[in-house]
Amino acid sequence: MFAELPRDDAATLDWLAFEQSGVLTTAQATGLLSEGVVRSRIRTGRWRSVCRGVLLTGNGRLTRDQQLWVAVLVAGTGAVLAGTTAATEAGVRGLPREPLHVLIPAERRAARAVLRHLPIDMAAVRVHRTSVLPAEHIQLGRPPRTTTARALVDAAGWARDEAQAQQLLAAGCQQRRVLPEELRKVMTTLPRAPRRQLIRQTIEDVAGGTEALSEIDFVRLCRRYGLPRPDLQRQRTDAAGRTRWLDAYWPAYRLHVEIDGAHHMDVHQWAADMRRQNDVWTAGDRILRFPAWLVRARPAEVAADLRRALTATGWRPAA
């Protein structure tokens, strides 16, 4: 039996531990318990000291939720999950799960010494500072995080290269977790965002119909090599009356381009692709197909094939 807390304090501690997945700051714990009781619980193994200033009301390995709470609490007042971490918590799939990204107000500084000495069962934490974090960019949650749109814009700015930045933005839109107009709205409040021009152009490409990175690359390829811009994700009805979506289509030249991702290698998808290709041909259109990696790695080859196909159907480059 333990009689360390008055009943109300015990309920408050239990509720706080529940809300924060069992992770508390030392200040929170000692605000409800005496320092001696806190030390006793750690010494007897009931609780665990995760790092300076942060406690776990248990003694097991940190779960994912607990790691998120540690990251926010270590970063201090005003900290929120951000970037790929916040986007992942919002349901965007396929993003890097580590390091954990946290955003804090510019006037604050995180405890770097603590961040360098996190336990081995804790993911690395990367703290970013910002002077622009309005209330509308905060998603109430446990723990708090930035909205999906702000998370993806930040993630694109922090990405290792431009290709990853585009991929992050495209993933959010492709998975219907964010709308292009939401990304645009965030950009209006971040005049100094890293990669601002690239992010704005990618948003416009997505808004124009592209939903996968390979299609964004394709639009840029056409622009770079002086080819006319195609319609993207254009709807059509096949011979069986089913609705289909064309990756890229030039209606004036009746030329259709299909950009194949990795899933097209599946045998069932391959058979479906052949039937769809036959349907396009029998309807009188021409079709070209390119793997997504070729669009990225050898754009000149793709552009040459497109130029020949467009010229064969009557297109002439501007003088």
Rank of each mutant, 00 (worst) to 15 (best):
D161N: 15
H101M: 11
R93Q: 12
R129P: 01
G141L: 04
R97V: 10
P180W: 05
G172F: 08
H128D: 06
V102R: 00
A113V: 14
E182H: 02
S131C: 03
R176K: 15
L183A: 10
R97Q: 07
L95Y: 00
A151Q: 03
R108W: 13
H128Q: 12
L169E: 02
I120K: 07
E107F: 12
L140Y: 13
E98W: 03
L103T: 03
V127T: 01
E181V: 09
Q166A: 04
R176Q: 10
A171L: 11
P96G: 00
V178T: 05
P99R: 11
E181M: 08
A110H: 10
R126D: 09
G157S: 09
T148W: 07
V114D: 11
P144I: 06
D154R: 11
A123K: 09
A155C: 07
Q164I: 08
L169G: 08
V125M: 02
P119G: 14
P134S: 15
A123F: 02
P144S: 13
V114I: 15
L169P: 01
R177A: 00
Q167H: 11
V178L: 04
Q167K: 06
L183V: 05
A151K: 15
L133S: 14
P180R: 03
L169D: 03
L133F: 03
A111P: 13
Q164M: 05
Q139T: 06
R145H: 06
G172I: 10
A171F: 00
R116F: 09
I104P: 10
G141F: 01
Q175T: 03
H137W: 08
I138V: 15
R145Y: 01
R160Y: 06
L140V: 14
E181P: 06
